[in-house]
Write a protein that binds this DNA or RNA. Structure first.
Lengths: 232, 232
DNA sequence: ATCATCCTTATGTCTAGACATAATAACTTT
DNA sequence: AAAGTTATTATGTCTAGACATAAGGATGAT
């Protein structure tokens, strides 16, 4: 059945539709690229691209010689954007304000050394910052920056723009590990975020590396009632 | 400088290295595909694939006629796997146990209708479940399933396997919206998760659609101290 | 039966060339 | 100067064919 639709997107969507409709149920084997190319009346490379995208999405599994199989237990994965605070505040149509609360150079404390893996005597820049949305507390940020990794940070003016934005401009491509949890507001957080002590708060921690060396560790605590949103 | 390295992966990695080393700084324009193909001694299609992958990663922006530009503000995105509860428990080397607490068929309450968009008189299956790790509370799950979307759910045996796993086998490919937040334990949660009332708890809510129709809404509350982890 | 070896096969990648398309630049007309 | 038209250009996609490679299957030796 040689159809005239040719583009790899059509093929990708058609194949996806057949999988969703259980024409090709989970676990089943798809026709070979050559057979599909025949059916769709196109070159094998076109089918290859279509199936490769589905494989990247985790919809199918592909193995040489074995063929292409509908993934029975698709690895559901969500992609969420690591938004800069300013962005997410402005996206809510709120006025963003930033304030540097504290700035000091210290030797990395043991817990930090264990966490990010810097040398015993490593000097770090320790910062406390507040981010506001429409003058209401939005996020309290506590950050440690490995001075050895970004020496320029010593001279950076962090009173106007947050350290996150400064770091992004300096070290745009990095790896990170991220954890989220719920914590109870301690005295400090209660003051900065204007909530009762013990209030449940959403907290994210992120460790960032650039080419293997740790750059920064940040603990971000959000105002009460904050929801992190993502789609997939 | 016609090199002998040819594979698109080599090219992708080389280009990435040049971007990281600021040989091509953020905002700058890369050579055209033809020029790069010359430099690397390969076909343009090979360069195209390399650059396309970098564009997919958000490292570069590509526009017809304009060319390929290093992304100044790369959209940082984290990918986290939507693990089935059983998986994440077993990944911790803990014994997984599941228990169905409550099961009832009800008419969708107004807040749920507003949330997921089902008809006024839609019948939904309402479930409460507990997930344990080594016999300690791990997650309390409250779920509503749109019966019209998956009629078979009425006859499904959900006493042994959780509704999540059952649904995954029935509706493997779906879209979802996901939010995370911190809440204080109310009376019910305090009992089920064995924490004091008011304890800060990590909560995720997920709405799932299949081909446009809402399938299920689930509210998952984790034990105290739970960390959601992800890397990028 | 067990193991090593060769053959077959489906995917993985590359090439050279072609046409399509979006967006800028250059030119023309008003 | 403003607006509309045309050329140019870099990416986007496709093709037909080629060789590479992983892995399953068959074969044969132990």
């Amino acid at each position: 059945m040689t159809q005239k639709k040719s583009s790899f997107q059509d093929i990708r969507d058609t194949v996806m539709a057949r999988i969703q409709s259980r024409h090709w149920p989970p676990g089943s084997l798809l026709p070979t690229e050559v057979e599909l190319a025949e059916e769709f009346g196109c070159a094998r490379a076109t089918v290859n691209r279509a199936l490769r995208e589905l494989a990247d999405q985790g919809v199918v599994d592909r193995k040489r010689k074995s063929g292409t199989r509908v993934n029975a237990a698709p690895v559901k994965q969500a992609v969420f954007e690591i938004a800069v605070v300013r962005q997410s505040v402005e996206d809510m149509n709120a006025a963003y304000r930033y304030s540097l609360v504290k700035r000091e150079v210290i030797t990395a404390p043991p817990w930090l050394r264990a966490r990010v893996g810097v040398k015993d005597d490593a000097q770090v820049l320790h910062l406390n910052c507040m981010h506001f949305a429409d003058n209401r507390p939005f996020q309290f940020e506590e950050r440690w920056i490995n001075i050895a990794a970004v020496p320029d940070v010593i001279d950076a003016d962090l009173s106007e723009t947050g350290p996150n934005e400064w770091l992004l401009s300096q070290v745009p491509f990095s790896n990170a590990e991220l954890t989220s949890t719920a914590i109870a507001a301690d005295e400090t957080l209660s003051e900065f975020l204007d909530v009762p002590q013990g209030a449940p708060l959403f907290q994210m921690e992120r460790t960032t590396w650039f080419q293997g060396t740790p750059v920064t560790f940040v603990r971000m605590t959000f105002h009460q009632g904050y929801h992190m949103r993502t789609r997939y």
